[in-house]
Design a protein around this nucleic acid. Structure first.
Length: 323
DNA sequence: TACACGTGGAG
DNA sequence: TCTCCAAGTGT
């Protein structure tokens, strides 16, 4: 089956089955940009509320550029991969400093911090109709199954094959942005990692995995080993304020806030064990024990509503509320 | 280049 | 409970 036919099938399926998502209403380059960055390695359902709040507070690139980083991070807190927010903010400031016009081409977008190979192609195709393929996890999975490629998800060879395959489809499509979104939508809803609903797939028959075992591809990747980490934190509260410190630039969640860690060997006399929380960051499994410091003099106190809390910080403060 | 970077949902 | 992994990017 030729690319034009496949593209037409995908577009027809997409027109019928596309989900109603906030960033698919009132499409403009800024909104597409925000949605694409939020969606990096993040599920649609997780993004939805963050996107709505963000757009209400930062409706355009100018509003984002003039905001303080602390507030930007507060609107991102809970979404994860916080570097995305800081790069988004830096990019907005750069755009505004250069006159306020957002780029109109893939190459222009690619120069902005936080906008890589995938995101530049997504924005250029969706917001400007540029016929460039997107290669995300969905497209790679679809390509592996459609072309019956015995390659692992993290294999660069699969990335190249997927780009080539999607490239043929997107140049054959009258609406490149919709074609790209159709591929990703298909991967997210019909041809998922753990299920393949071939009955409802517009590519059934043309796909090399039809009647076979689509779930066998792409091949499994090797996982990095978990690292167990034990931490101890000092918690204190006084007059509605709590003891918080800002995470270092070199840490897991730079710029975010959490209760300070107890150094190894630090004096624990006078501290009361509050409990333990578990938290996962990247490949680290953290077990954090909280100690209440009833003698805190209030110095360094922060209103927890006013700063972006790390996930671990949020869990630790939860122990404080129950104490 | 391999690795670091978050979080939460699904099975 | 546990593993996998989601519309990636930067170093």
């Amino acid at each position: 089956m030729d690319s034009a036919t496949l593209s037409a099938r995908l577009l027809a399926w997409y027109a019928r089955r596309r989900r109603d998502l906030p960033w698919r209403r009132d499409v403009n380059p800024y909104r597409v940009w925000i949605s694409e960055v939020m969606l990096q390695q993040t599920r649609v359902e997780a993004v939805r509320p963050f996107y709505e709040r963000w757009l209400a507070r930062f409706p355009d690139v100018a509003a984002l550029a003039v905001a303080e980083e602390e507030e930007v991070l507060r609107y991102w807190a809970g979404l994860g991969y916080y570097r995305r927010a800081r790069m988004l903010h830096a990019a907005a400031r750069r755009v505004v400093a250069a006159g306020g016009e957002l780029p109109r081409s893939r190459a222009g977008w690619r120069e902005l911090p936080g906008v890589g190979e995938y995101t530049s192609a997504a924005i250029a195709s969706i917001a400007f109709g540029e016929a460039v393929p997107v290669v995300d996890g969905n497209v790679k999975r679809l390509a592996a199954r459609f072309l019956a490629l015995e390659l692992a998800a993290d294999d660069r060879a699969l990335h190249r094959k997927a780009e080539e395959w999607a490239g043929q489809l997107v140049v054959a499509a009258p609406a490149p942005g919709d074609l790209n979104q159709a591929l990703m939508e298909l991967g997210a809803t019909v041809c998922t990692p753990r299920a393949a609903d071939c009955e409802h797939c517009p590519l059934v028959g043309a796909c090399a995995s039809t009647g076979g075992d689509p779930l066998a591809r792409p091949l499994p990747t090797r996982r990095p080993r978990w690292r167990e980490v034990r931490l101890e934190h000092r918690l204190a509260r006084r007059d509605g304020r709590v003891l918080l410190v800002q995470c270092r630039e070199s840490g897991w969640t730079p710029g975010l806030w959490e209760p300070p860690r107890l150094a190894v060997g630090e004096d624990r006399s006078g501290l009361i064990p509050l409990g333990t929380v578990r938290h996962v960051i990247s490949r680290h499994r953290i077990e954090a024990t909280a100690f209440l410091d009833p003698g805190w003099d209030g110095s360094g106190g922060v209103d927890p509503e006013r700063v972006p809390l790390s996930g671990l910080g949020r869990k630790l403060l939860g122990l404080l509320d129950r104490a």
